[in-house]
Simulated assay, not measured.
Amino acid sequence: MGAVRVGVEGVYEGLAERGYAYGPVFQGLRDAWRRGDEVFVEVAVPAEARGDAARCAIHPALLDAALHGVRFGDFVTDDDQAYVPFSWTGVTLNAVGATVLRVTLSPAGRDAIALRATDTTGAPVLSARSLALRPVSAQQLNDTRGSRTDALHRVEWVDASGAVAV
């Protein structure tokens, strides 16, 4: 249909340079194409996380990987700036438990995209009329990675006898 394949090699290294840190489960971008102002990506949950996908409406790593395609389009004002999802509008979930998505990203205004995701058969899984993206500095991203020792909360396990174990 006139789409041109774009290389996805080095995507996660490039994102790391912008301040994003993705573990192996969140590196699901498999392929990408571009046609005009649209970007098409295929994303997958790694085999070791597929059991978790069945328990989710949409696996967080799969949805996040779908958004990694933003870097292949002209969707944001400043290509050198890091952006994060900010506000979703008009979201429809049609299916749950997907492990692979084929996603179309298209412009939906300034620093915003529309998203349509299908499974490998072409059946609709998720759509969003608009996802507003907001810039974030590398320092802001780094600040969110505080250590567990500076957290204002902690997990306490309580056994059946009522004794608190920390």
Rank of each mutant, 00 (worst) to 15 (best):
F26N: 09
F75Q: 00
V11E: 09
V4E: 05
A160M: 04
D31H: 10
N94K: 13
L141W: 05
Y12F: 09
F75W: 04
A151D: 08
A128K: 01
G109P: 13
A66L: 00
A117C: 04
W88L: 15
D64S: 07
D74P: 01
W157Q: 10
T118W: 08
D37I: 13
S127T: 14
G23F: 10
L63C: 09
P60M: 03
T89I: 09
G109K: 14
L105D: 07
H153D: 02
G14H: 07
S130K: 02
A47F: 09
S130M: 01
R116K: 10
R102D: 02
A108R: 00
A54P: 04
G10L: 02
Y83K: 08
Q139V: 12
G90T: 15
F40W: 04
A117W: 01
R116C: 03
A112K: 15
R30A: 13
L29V: 10
E48A: 14
A66N: 00
R71Q: 03
D79I: 05
F26M: 11
P60A: 07
A47G: 10
A98M: 03
G28V: 00
T144R: 10
S106G: 09
V166L: 11
A32P: 01
A138P: 14
V158Y: 07
R116S: 04
A123N: 07
P124D: 10
D64W: 12
V43E: 00
A54F: 15
Y22S: 01
Y83Q: 08
V136P: 00
V96D: 03
P60R: 13
V84I: 03
V25K: 15
V103M: 07
D111W: 15
Y83R: 06
P107D: 10
T104V: 05
E9G: 02
V155Y: 09
A114R: 04
D52L: 14
L126K: 01
A32S: 05
V158P: 01
C56P: 00
Q139K: 08
A163S: 11
D37T: 13
L133V: 05
M1P: 03
M1S: 14
S130Y: 01
